[in-house]
Amino acid sequence: MKPRVACVDGVELLMDYLEGTLAPEEREAIESHLFGCPRCTAFIESYRQTPRILRAATAASLPEDLAESLRRFLASRR
């Protein structure tokens, strides 16, 4: 019999689930909850998008003085 899983359990194990480090039985139990739960489906989507959003946002957010000195450095290397 599969262990009963609630949203809180799925969230706790989400990273391990996404990285594929869970035992098969645990993975199956998490999947049967996560994909039948609209709240968890929405949560997973936002959890998965978070690193991408932060990566894109911080890539363009270098302070202007540092950006300028890097531009000069890059120009000097041409």
Binding site: A6, C7, R39, C40, A42, F43, S46, T50, I53, A57
Partner: peptide, 21 residues
């Protein structure tokens, strides 16, 4: 989470972060 371990927020609110960009 509520007392049963369910997300306290509604799906639309749980999804909101993914549209920040």
């Amino acid at each position: 989470f509520d007392g049963d371990g369910r997300h306290a927020a509604e799906p639309a609110d749980l999804l909101a972060a993914s549209r920040a960009d």
